[in-house]
Every structure is written in structure tokens, then in C-alpha cells.
Simulated assay, not measured.
Amino acid sequence: MTAAGEHDADGPLVVDVAVIGAGPAGLSAALNLVRARRTVLLVDANRPRNAATLRSHGFLTRDGISPLELRKLGREEVEAYPEATVVQSVVDRVARDGDGWAVHGTHRGAEFHARARAVVVATGLREEFPALPSLRAFYGTSVHSCVECDGYEHGGASLAFLCETADVVDRALLVASWTDDLVVYTNGTATLDERGRARLAAAGVLVDERPVADLEGDRTGLTGVRLADGDVRAHTGAFVRPLWHADLDWIDAPLDRDADGLVRVDRLGRTGVPGLYAVGDVTPPGPEQLVVAAGHGASTAAAVHRDLVGGLEDLRDAVQ
């Protein structure tokens, strides 16, 4: 093991593990790794996908906490360990460096270099929303993307579901389990076949396939959906189906990615590239509840520690 904050002769910080990303998955991985007495570099760009969300739910003992507060508490817990080094930076390159990994990043013009025996990628996803001018104004308060996280607060309300993708039926039926008053808006984009229409009709879900102009509301929140033809339908809440993008071009390694660009891993976060792990939203099936991501982070941390104990050469043989 390397002492925390140790630098080699050329200057880079040398650690056992670099964890890239400080959401619940990355923080949980970092916390469990320092508790295994591994020296850890935790790098956070401080650009969380859920920054606009006021409350996060379903995290045992922390139900209703602000996501930003949850991240702050987790970061403070990690920083309390002498084995941890926490850096706010954007990582722009991770590449093989001998039997380890070179990590390079920048923050406000300043650069940093580190070397790690293993790297855990926990950078999450970038969301792309339907092109509605006012959507961002209501996102995190009246409009949400995760019904498991925020459905309870809108239970029984008049809800809109904005979806332009092929999985519209399954996702709409999920939202409908929280309310009997749901209208699906396809914005003239998502295609419904007769079977899909029948499934939604049987569940009492209405479908409006007209183009959507925008959302309407005031300081109290969302009040409705305005169609391109000028018609306005009243709603007090909405769920939206974003497109998710995994921006991983900064990793110089042959990652195995699925059709959605997510990193394929085994059940413990191993990518198939020895010494490189991925956890959280950047892995299939994509976005997940915070408590689930944290659990995956802990599992991956255990795998990283075991692999380092056994030697990454052993892991390379096992993968091959």
C-alpha cells in the first residue's frame, strides 16, 4: 500500500485506487476502500446530474435529504480518513501507465497528475431532455425523471408523462402505478402500435400524440402542458423520459459498451480490463436509485480490494 499523499520522483500523486466521480456510487466505493486501508484519490467534477432536485428519497435514514447535502456528508466522511485525498477537478485522461494507470485532470486552469494501481469510474450520465423551453424551470420540483424516487409525492395527482422513445408503454405503465390520472405525451415522436395502445387503454392511461409546445406554470409549480395547436391540458406534476449519455472518451482503454453506450461489467463492477472498474449509472441498466448505486459502490470496493490483494496479474488470467 501507498501512504496517503505520497508522490513519486516525477511528481504525480501515487495511490492504490483512483475513484472518478463522487455521487453515491463513487463515494461509497471510496469510503469502503479507505476502510480497507487503501490509499484513495477521489476526483469530483462537482457536476451532479440531480443538482436541480430538492429532495432525494428511498435512502435509508436519509429519506428526504437534499442530494447535494447527501454528497456533502459523504465527501466529509471520506475526507476524514487519512488514506483519502479528495480533489475537485475534471478528469480528461485515464490511460495505462506500466502496471498501473495515469490520471490527468484540470480545474480552473490548474493541472494535476496521479498514478493508481486501479481506477473506479463512477462519473454517471449526462441527461438530454425533450426540447421544451420551460422544462428545466420545473425540473426537480414539479417535473422529475425517476418515478421510483419521486412518485410518492405526486401520488393520485393529475400527471403528464413526456416520452419520445420506444419504451413509452412500459414506462408509462410504471408511472400509472402512482396515479389514476395520467396522460402520455409523445410529442409526435414516439411510435405506438395497436398492442401498446391497448395496454395503455386497459390501464386507463390517455395518450396525446400532438406536438408539445411547452410546459406552463407559476411560482407554485407546474399547471399544465401546452400543445402546439394552443390547447392546454391541466397537470400538477410530470415525469419525463430523458436520453442518457455516458461521456467516456477520456478513458484510453478498450471498454465494452452496450447499445446505449453503458459500460458492461460483471456483478462486482469489473470491466474486463484488469485494474479498471465501473459502477453506478454509467453501467447497465443505467440510472438507478441512490441507495442502489451506493450498494453497488460498496460491492465494487470489495472487489477492488480483493483483486489488489490477489494481484492484478491473477485477475488478468481469470478474465482471459
Rank of each mutant, 00 (worst) to 15 (best):
M1T: 12
M1F: 10
E6M: 13
H7A: 12
L13I: 11
D16E: 14
I20K: 08
L27A: 05
A30R: 03
N32F: 10
R37Y: 09
V43I: 12
V43R: 03
D44H: 04
A45I: 04
T53A: 14
R55N: 14
G58E: 08
D63S: 10
G64S: 11
R71W: 09
R75I: 10
E76W: 07
T85I: 04
V86F: 07
Q88C: 01
V90R: 13
R93A: 11
R96Y: 00
R96E: 07
D99Y: 00
A102N: 02
V103T: 08
H107S: 14
H113S: 12
R115N: 03
A118Q: 06
A118D: 04
V120W: 12
A122N: 09
G124R: 02
L125E: 10
L125M: 12
E127S: 14
A131F: 01
P133T: 05
S134K: 15
L135V: 13
R136V: 15
F138M: 09
G140L: 11
S145Y: 15
C146E: 13
V147W: 08
E148D: 14
C149G: 08
H154S: 08
S158N: 13
S158I: 00
L159V: 07
D167I: 02
V168E: 00
D170V: 08
W178Y: 12
T179C: 05
T179A: 02
D180P: 15
D181F: 03
L182M: 05
V184P: 05
D193E: 08
R195E: 12
A203R: 15
D208H: 10
R210V: 01
P211I: 06
A213L: 10
E216C: 06
G217Y: 02
D218K: 00
T223M: 02
R226L: 05
H235A: 11
T236W: 00
G237S: 03
F239I: 01
R241A: 13
L243K: 09
W244E: 10
H245T: 12
D249V: 02
W250G: 07
R257V: 15
D260L: 13
D260K: 14
L262W: 01
R264P: 00
V265C: 11
L268H: 12
R270D: 00
G272V: 03
G275A: 04
L276Q: 07
P284G: 11
V291R: 03
V292I: 15
A293C: 08
A293N: 09
A294E: 04
H296S: 10
T300N: 08
A302I: 06
V309Y: 09
V309A: 14
L315F: 00
A318K: 10
